[in-house]
């Protein structure tokens, strides 16, 4: 038997939950190519202050989720993923702040040459970093064709909800 965490291709699943009182809590789950977890990082709740709300306006959410939470989590995680997957295009700008590929999960696989078919989904990339696609093509074969890449996000959300719940219970 060999050791399992030295997987040739690792993926990160980055998402966040929003708690009305406490703000955003971000989470990053790094898995092997089959979805088995290798490392998980999450943040303490972050609530933008009034100045940030006014000054960032509609860009506040991408800023908090991407630059603030996403970048911090990627910097903190020990097992670095080869590809960080996100669910919303609005935080694709995260790619400008991190050294690894960031892909946005799309529901449909199209013939668009800027996209990459991964599992059951298509992956979109930042327009300034379309070369990421080329780098990932060879890894794409390592992902089972019927892999549901949305499922790990559910796990992360559930874990984040649990941390918020336990955090609330401790402060209560």
């Amino acid at each position: 038997m060999s050791h399992g965490n030295q997987d040739p291709f690792r993926m990160g699943f980055l998402t966040a939950v929003e708690d009305a009182e406490r703000g955003f809590v971000g989470g990053l789950l790094v898995t092997n190519r089959f979805g088995r977890p290798l490392e998980f990082q999450c943040t303490a709740p972050v609530k933008p202050n009034r100045a940030q709300q006014i000054l960032y306006g509609p860009t506040l959410r991408p800023f908090v989720l991407g630059e603030l939470l996403g970048r911090t989590l990627i910097e903190k995680v020990g097992v670095k993923p080869h590809l960080v997957l996100i669910e919303s295009e609005e935080i694709l700008d995260l790619r400008l702040h991190v050294p690894m590929a960031v892909g946005c999960l799309l529901d449909k696989v199209t013939d668009d040459t800027t996209q990459l078919a991964l599992g059951k989904h298509g992956i979109g990339f930042h327009p300034d970093h379309l070369s990421d696609r080329t780098d990932l093509v060879r890894h794409a074969k390592a992902i089972p064709a019927d892999a549901d890449l949305r499922e790990p996000f559910e796990r992360v959300r559930e874990a984040l909800a649990e941390t918020v719940r336990l955090g609330s219970a401790r402060t209560a």
Binding site: H3, G4, N5, G26, R36, E39, C42, T43, A44, V77
Partner: peptide
């Protein structure tokens, strides 16, 4: 931003 993390035990690959 304060973070918290866990690393999963290194399992045996078949």
């Amino acid at each position: 931003v304060v973070t918290f993390g866990i690393t999963f035990p290194e399992g045996e690959a078949f």
